[in-house]
Structures are given as structure tokens and as C-alpha cells.
């Protein structure tokens, strides 16, 4: 057993016993919410980090997962699919939507793909909003079924959700690692590096990108189910462009393509968002500055992270070795970049 394994084991153990040590439910609640975002980030990392496809509508799959749970496990239609079963169904549904979106669009060059996914990300919540006879429109769907395990309902404590998410994240990490070191993972990297050469290796680039889209979407669908059940409510305004950009910022901050980087990035941003900003606001209020509200600077924060990281440390805080090399070679060597650029254009077929 290596030191790395030991450290991981220790971290895992600490996370398992944490709720017994810290009896403050709001802390566990925060960790559970952060966990949902870690799951989202792990999924988006497959699409953006591994396959190099910029998906700006990722929150749409989060919405699809959440609404699947809300519609199939509540009084809305009187359907009550068990939570645990939904954890299997929702990722499949989200993946199907990923295929639906990806099939016609993945032939597009990178930046067009980004825009189309953005459009999709707008259409999906808008559709949930507009189809009010099924979704209650802006009010959303509330009083979702409470998950239960061996007859014990989860209740309104965050702790059971915390454990569910911990388990899902562990599985997610395992899945992402497996994918990275596999035929599929190499194909993603190859496409990112040189799509035309990848085709000459016999890689079906469209199918391979679709796989990234579908797998990424399934993580998002999974996170959606847990998030909806935990919140006991879904409404269309939780899944806008800003959520997609938030998850992207987590990747950029932590390090696209690096599983641990992405986890750290999403944890740090969640911490700032739900802890640091509100806490410092209350501190400021207590100190007499009643007009400040740091939470208003949230979007500024995402923006500043995206811009400054791209300018000064595009590989993220905890980079993947490969990504770091890609970014720096390209920035230091304009000739190579120009060559890659022209080759990229040549790929359009």
C-alpha cells in the first residue's frame, strides 16, 4: 500500500465519521450540497476535461435529473418510483437527452458546439417553465417523495443525503479513473489532440464524443435526483446558464482533466459561495456595514476566476500534467499553435 492509498483511506474514513463529530446540521448540509456539485463537476470533467468539448448547457441535464425525480416520485402524477430506483433511471434519462442533443451537433466545430449547448441549456428550463400543466410552471414541483432505507425515512436531516452523495462521489471517481485509463479514454484524448489523426486510428469520432456527452450527462442526472430529493422541491430557475458556468468555473479553478483538481475546485467554490460570502456578509453587518452584501459579487467571482485562471494559470490549481503541457506549449510557441489551428480547420469534414 502506497502513501497515496493511505492518505486516501484516511480521507475516506474522516469523511465517513465527520457527521458524528460535527453535530452542526448546517455544516453537514453544506457538505451535502457541495457533494452534489462535486458530482456535477466530475461529470462535466468527462466532457470538457477528457474529451475537450465545451458544454455550456450542462445544467440542463441537472434539470432533467431533478425533474425526472419530481415527476416520477411525488403526488404530481401520483407515481412513486423509489429513490434508489431513480438513481438508476435518471442517469439513463439524462444520458438519452445527451445523445439527443449530441447526435446532430457533435459534428460542429468546438465553439459552435459551445453555443448550441448553451442554447439547449436555455431551452430545457424554459420548457419546464412553459409546460406548466405538467410542471406547475414557475412554482415548480414540491413535496417530493422522501427516500427511505430499510424503512427509515431520510427526514429533513442532511446526514443521509451526505452519505448517499459520499458513496456516489466515490463511485464517480472510480468511474472517471477507469474511463481515463481505457480504450475510450485514450480515444477522447486523441480526439482532443488531433481529431483527424484520431480518425485514422479507426476512432469513430462522433460516437466517441457522444459517449462523453452521454456519460457526462448521466452524472448530472444522478446529481439532479439527489439534489431534488434533498431540497424537496424543483423549480425551473435553479438550472440557468449561471449554474453551467459555476460548474465550469469549478473545473477551470481546480484543473480541467484532473479528477482531484476538479474535486478541490468545486469544493473551494462551494465553500466560498455558501460559506465565505454569507459569513463575511454577516460579519460586515455585525461590524456596522449594513449595506454590504458580498453574495452579490458571486457572478463577479466566477467571471474573475475564469478570466484570471485562463490568463495566468489555465491548467488550474491542481493540473493534469498533460493539460498543463498543452496550455503552456501553445502559449509559448505561437508557431505550433498556428499550425494546430490550421490543422484544426482542415479537420472540418
Amino acid at each position: 500500500m502506497t502513501r497515496r492509498h493511505a492518505a486516501l483511506g484516511f480521507l475516506g474514513l474522516a469523511l465517513v465519521v465527520y457527521p458524528f463529530v460535527d453535530r452542526n446540521n448546517s455544516h453537514v448540509d453544506f457538505l451535502a450540497n457541495a457533494g452534489a456539485f462535486i458530482l456535477l463537476a466530475l461529470g462535466l470533467n468527462i466532457v470538457v476535461g477528457f474529451a475537450g468539448l465545451l458544454d455550456l448547457g450542462y445544467a440542463a441535464f441537472f434539470a432533467i435529473g431533478s425533474y425526472s425525480y419530481a415527476m416520477l416520485a411525488s403526488q404530481q402524477f401520483g407515481i412513486h418510483v423509489p429513490f434508489w430506483l431513480m438513481l438508476l433511471i435518471a442517469p439513463v434519462v439524462a444520458a438519452l437527452f445527451g445523445l439527443l442533443l449530441g447526435a446532430p451537433t457533435l459534428r460542429l466545430r468546438g465553439d459552435y458546439l459551445a453555443i448550441v449547448t448553451l442554447g439547449f441549456g436555455e431551452i430545457v428550463p424554459q420548457t419546464f417553465l412553459n409546460l406548466s400543466q405538467y410542471t406547475n410552471g414557475p412554482n415548480g414541483i414540491s413535496s417530493l417523495d422522501q427516500p427511505s432505507l430499510f424503512g427509515h425515512a431520510f427526514g429533513f436531516s442532511a446526514t443521509p443525503y451526505y452519505y448517499v452523495l459520499l458513496g456516489l462521489i466515490a463511485l464517480g471517481i472510480l468511474a472517471a479513473r477507469n474511463l481515463q485509463n481505457s480504450r475510450l479514454g485514450r480515444a477522447w484524448m486523441a480526439i482532443r489532440e488531433d481529431e483527424l489523426a484520431a480518425r485514422h486510428m479507426g476512432i469513430n469520432t462522433t460516437a466517441t464524443k457522444l459517449a462523453a456527452f452521454a456519460l457526462g450527462a448521466s452524472f448530472s442526472g444522478l446529481a439532479g435526483v439527489v439534489y431534488a430529493a434533498k431540497l424537496d422541491l424543483v423549480s425551473p430557475d435553479e438550472f440557468g446558464f449561471n449554474v453551467s458556468v459555476l460548474v465550469l468555473s469549478m473545473l477551470v479553478l481546480g484543473g480541467m482533466g484532473n479528477i482531484w483538481g476538479v474535486i478541490v475546485g468545486s469544493f473551494v467554490l462551494s465553500f466560498i459561495n455558501s460559506f465565505l460570502l454569507p459569513q463575511s456578509t454577516s460579519l460586515a453587518h455585525a461590524a456596522g456595514f449594513v449595506n454590504v452584501d458580498f453574495t452579490n459579487y458571486r457572478f463577479m467571482l466566477y467571471g474573475v476566476i475564469l478570466v484570471t485562471m485562463m490568463l495566468f494559470r489555465p491548467e488550474g490549481l491542481i493540473p493534469s500534467r498533460q493539460r498543463a503541457a498543452e496550455f503552456h506549449e501553445a502559449i509559448l510557441d505561437p508557431a505550433l499553435a498556428a499550425q494546430e489551428q490550421s490543422e484544426y480547420e482542415g479537420v472540418a469534414r
Binding site: V48, L54, D111, M300, M310, F327, I331, A338, E340
Partner: peptide, 17 residues
């Protein structure tokens, strides 16, 4: 001259700012 993803992500950041 950076990889194409980089300026695009920066532009999204600028928009948010």
C-alpha cells in the same frame, strides 16, 4: 495563440464580470 477553449472561456468570464 492559446488552445481555442481558452479565449472562449475567458470571454464567458468577461461577460459575467
Amino acid at each position: 495563440n492559446a488552445p481555442r477553449l481558452a479565449p472562449l472561456i475567458t470571454a464567458i468570464g468577461m461577460s459575467f464580470i
